[in-house]
């Protein structure tokens, strides 16, 4: 595949994953308690940054796995453990590497690394690449876009929670219930903005 079309595939898939198929708003993935109760925007950027880095590095191994399993009759059984092994390799490498060579960085990421790695959004993005038969450029582009889109969505959820905390909300709805309703409204708005229509 020519390099120019490879790069254009990369950016096209990145944009698709970031906006059109955002993992939080459209696929409801990666919405864990760390995202719902994020302490600061800086933590959100760190969390999303770790997710993006792991997604980008793992996608290289995952695209190899997708290529090897493409014509196998045991694909549905081997894919999940193979993805786990790919992500685990990157996870251990990042953990041990930062601990050994970047101790200052390691102190910041030590607690959030397991949660940002073993995340439904990460594995969900890989399954999408497998189902659609993406090549290596498309897989890495989709993973990168999913990571950036996830980071932005995490920050949107954080600022939404802050805004809702100072709004006059009925007692029973305060906190998580009104936040979920807000995300639902946002999901509907983005769904229409992208150009989808409600199914008839």
């Amino acid at each position: 595949m020519p390099m120019e079309s490879g790069f254009s595939s990369f950016f096209l898939m990145a944009l698709t994953a970031l906006a059109v198929e955002n993992v939080i708003f459209f696929r409801v993935l990666g919405l864990n308690r760390q995202v719902l109760f994020l302490k600061s925007p800086k933590m959100g950027i760190l969390y999303g940054g770790m997710f993006t880095l792991v997604a980008l590095l793992s996608s290289l191994l995952v695209s190899l796995v997708n290529h090897l399993l493409r014509d196998s009759i045991y694909t549905s059984y081997l894919r999940a453990p193979a993805y786990f092994i790919c992500v685990a390799i990157v996870y251990v490498a990042i953990y041990l590497g930062t601990r050994a060579f970047l101790p200052a960085v390691f102190e910041h990421i030590r607690d959030i690394l397991p949660v940002s790695v073993f995340n439904t959004a990460l594995f969900g993005a890989f399954y999408v690449t497998a189902i659609n038969g993406f090549n290596i450029f498309q897989t890495t582009g989709y993973a990168f876009g999913a990571g950036v889109g996830y980071t932005l969505a995490v920050l949107v959820v954080y600022f939404a929670r802050k805004r809702l905390a100072i709004s006059p909300v009925p007692r029973s709805f305060r906190g998580l219930p009104v936040l979920l309703i807000y995300i639902g409204m946002l999901s509907l708005a983005l769904y229409g903005l992208i150009g989808h229509g409600l199914p008839t």
């Binding site: 459209f26 709805f173 998580l176 199914p199």
Partner: peptide, 26 residues
Amino acid sequence: LSGVQLPFFGFISVGFLLAFVRFTTK
């Protein structure tokens, strides 16, 4: 209403359900 199958309705319905549980337990 086919739209209730979309994620946005799931978010809203779960939000209301959690609020109801909280109200009841209080």
